[in-house]
Nucleic acid binder design. Sequence first.
DNA 1: CATCATAATTGACCTAGATCAATTCGTTGC
DNA 2: GCAACGAATTGATCTAGGTCAATTATGATG
Lengths: 250, 250
Amino acid sequence: MSREEKPNTAILSRALPRKKQGLSPCAACEVRHLAVCSALKTDDLDELDAILTRRDLSAGDTLFDEGEPARNVYNLTSGCLKLYKLLPDGRRQVTGFLFAGDFVGLANSDDYIYSAEAVTQVALCRFEKHKLDHLMNTHLSLEKRLLGMARFELVEAQEQILMLGRKTAMERIASFILMLSDRAQRRDEPADPVKLPMSRNDIGDYLGLTTETVSRTITRLRKNGIISLDSDRSITIKQRETMNDIAEGF
Amino acid sequence: MSREEKPNTAILSRALPRKKQGLSPCAACEVRHLAVCSALKTDDLDELDAILTRRDLSAGDTLFDEGEPARNVYNLTSGCLKLYKLLPDGRRQVTGFLFAGDFVGLANSDDYIYSAEAVTQVALCRFEKHKLDHLMNTHLSLEKRLLGMARFELVEAQEQILMLGRKTAMERIASFILMLSDRAQRRDEPADPVKLPMSRNDIGDYLGLTTETVSRTITRLRKNGIISLDSDRSITIKQRETMNDIAEGF
DNA sequence: CATCATAATTGACCTAGATCAATTCGTTGC
DNA sequence: GCAACGAATTGATCTAGGTCAATTATGATG
């Protein structure tokens, strides 16, 4: 880029005062570019801000339960949230882990089709569904963005279905670690080491395995020198190519 | 409805000639109300018709392969289509069976993320992606409809994930038969008997089981009097409540 | 209608991952 | 530093569903 593209003082002098006047907090949001919110121009962000409520959860807190009327949708701005479904005898399937920038509630239904619980400390923006729907009518880019996100989530769901239906325990674990790495990278975090904020039990319930199998399999990857376990619940991928091959079933 | 609402001759005289002049074939489409197409008013259907190509496939024909550039999307108007992903060693996961009214290509990507193959004789409407995108810009209801369909598909994907991750073979088979029954009903076909146009092998690859397990499990349901096998690849659900209980994991 | 090919069923046996049961590791609080 | 408790790991054993191997239906074809 040429030096000439650096903003001159004239432009700067217009921008700065507005920020000081208290332009929408959304404008300063660090994950805006990752979230639905990126669909709106900076000038329109106050309309978004007007209909949202910010909320924090501690690790272990429940956001909502499967079966409750689904009045709200959420935008996760920091932390990790898990979504899960239960069978009557207590068997549990974690259907997804969400991180900063992810949207909660794309899967549309009158009632929530899964429960949502904080894995770590979590911050979110809550929108009443009907208010967001209304905003979508005046800001079509918002609807486009939501459609794009839904279509992308469908791609990821297909991957998850392949994993659960046909991959071995080892292939699932490798796929899972790589997925977390890829997603960290997408939100401008380092791809390596990979943080695993969730318990072995949660990982098992996501991968359709037991805690014990998750543990044994991670141990095996470690003993083979493909990964190493750091402290603070994170993993370093020592041989990414090998991991890829394992994950893809080669 | 009152008699007065019956169209009078004046209205009829406007409507009939248009039909004879060759009003869009879409207007006569039997599955229009099930498909994306329902988003458009009858008067706008010719715009849809203008950008589509009708196509037939015989059982076993491939529509497209995973990895090909995804230039087209499709609307299935009759028959059954299966979508599947392969692992390098040939393990296969059928990610979905589609029927009349279903849309092929909601999961968005530059390349197809699965292969599509006709299970039975199939009829479809093909749309070039960019043309449909363009039509969406002038007909916002089309975009809304697509978003609605994507969000509904996400709900179904979550169910499938629970099934593959945590249900037993018996629970999967029961869930599968009931799902086919529900979907038949949604397209105004009888809920019972349920047609299973796909092979045991396809069912296995959808449920993450082998052909043998599918066969044994269906036999067990039959011997317990919960279902009966008719000729012509269809199944009668004799005890729907029991089936529901099995499917839900009670 | 006999022939061949393919799909479905059934049986015998095997194995990946589950289950059950101890340890061991990490944290948190005192 | 040291209990105390939950999470993770490791080991021993079990089992649901897979694999391998016939056998039997079910169509398609000349």
